[in-house]
Design a protein around this nucleic acid. Structure first.
Lengths: 245, 245
DNA sequence: CGGAATCTTGATTAGGTTCAAGATGAGTGG
DNA sequence: CCACTCATCTTGAACCTAATCAAGATTCCG
């Protein structure tokens, strides 16, 4: 929590010993700094701005906004959604720490989804023009950005595959995906709190909230999960992985 | 057709007046060369290899193959698909001329889908390491690659949105998407031939071939389309756009 | 021309939605 | 701290869209 109180004071031009910079960031292995050396990190640090916290339900950027920056999630959870022609919200992603948000806006030079916080979140802002310049200067930053964009393409493809599953498989895949990501961040993969509502889950998975509710109950009764409102305990991960076919 | 007969003879190191190079390519506006000047084009041309034609059902690269190259489609149509855990094929994209294929393989350094030809296709091979090097040298190539990767993220997101539609809306969206892409290539957007089978369409849209067949018949009866096996004539594009809500 | 693959059409079935109503939980003010 | 309210979540019953199953019809291709 000391980190939160010291952030966003000012852009740090001399990073030696700083408390808030890529060098000391706990998620650097999952984020842009991955595999960079000290001098490369310094260059990256100099273009990144730490932002004030984004509070629950606050919007980080809106669909249609000019693409100014990419954002890296440091703490908290956010969701991205599009407004369809019919005016409905369609959630396209949940973002955990280490995720980069906004790459899809490069084409067309404007963000093509809205991103808002599900709970208070800390993000780092990476101005796109600065980043683009850095790509020319530092090969490893370039490679890392390509990797992360490629990963986002992969994520979206996985979401397409998800859409072909039946409701039980969707819930299972959703929980297993969250579990894996929590584990990667050093959190308990078998006992976690959902930061999103049933409605968000349903929207994301393309099913109704009633179905989400019914299936979580079913998994609870089948002793695969312990469901207590937003708190989830995975009791039998093998069963969860073997849901249907 | 003269183009086809002269391709793949050898890598062209001096592009002045060449018949097969980015400078003279009819789809350069949709592809990597977009917005590049002559000297930039030369550099790009020097790393690109023109391939022999990929014949119908031939595989360009396989899921799991090491990522060696990205490919640009020059003529013909290809499809990309993944094999799911259950051994089923899941089509994730159809590729028309100008599309770039393979970006999702950068993360993980291996292709994560298989790409094969639906009809004889000509592709240009872009070795990834050479391209990555060029990104550092030529800012406009870098920007163009970022744009195209970003576009691919956007495409995948659209596919996710597609999955939320009902069957009629899916068919409608699919045909409108094809129509738009044909138009962009200078072909008739209202009269075209589907290069993919009903089975491929159904797979891609996440519905059954029976449903595809029934709905094409229905649209035909409603005088929205004229359907003659693979030949499609769009008779009333406004009606097609207004399918359901 | 003949056989296989692809496509069409019909009848039945089922998974998930919709509609409806009650239960639980979070937030607010007295 | 409790009562009150609104939002979220759960549960049940009826319904509907698209899947499945089953046969023909057409097209493709050697």
């Amino acid at each position: 929590m000391t980190e939160i109180s010291t952030i966003a004071l000012e852009k740090n031009k001399n990073n030696k010993g700083c408390t808030v910079c890529c060098q000391s960031c706990s998620i650097s292995e999952l984020c842009l700094p991955f595999s960079l050396n000290h001098s490369e990190l310094d260059k990256l640090d100099n273009i990144i701005e730490r932002k004030k916290p984004v509070h629950k339900n606050e919007i980080l950027f809106k669909q249609g906004d000019m693409l100014g920056s990419i954002y890296a999630v440091r703490t908290g959870t956010l969701k991205s959604y599009k407004i369809t022609e019919n005016g409905e919200e369609q959630i396209t992603a949940f973002h955990l720490p280490g995720d980069l948000v906004g790459f899809s806006g490069i084409f067309g030079e404007q963000h093509n989804h809205t991103t808002s916080a599900l709970e208070t979140a800390m993000v780092c802002e990476v101005p796109f023009n600065d980043l683009n310049f850095l790509l020319g200067e530092v090969p490893r930053v370039r490679y890392q950005v390509l990797r992360l964009m490629s990963k986002e393409i992969k994520n979206e493809q996985d979401l397409v595959l998800l859409s072909r599953l039946n409701a039980e498989e969707k819930i299972s895949a959703f929980l297993l995906n969250l579990s894996k990501r929590f584990e990667r961040h050093g959190f308990d993969p078998f006992n976690f709190r959902l930061s999103m509502s049933r409605s968000d889950i349903a929207n994301y998975l393309g099913i109704t909230i009633e179905t989400v509710s019914r299936l979580l109950r079913k998994f609870h009764n089948d002793e695969i999960l312990e469901v207590n409102n937003k708190q989830i305990i995975i009791k039998d991960i093998e069963k969860l992985k073997n849901i249907k076919g």
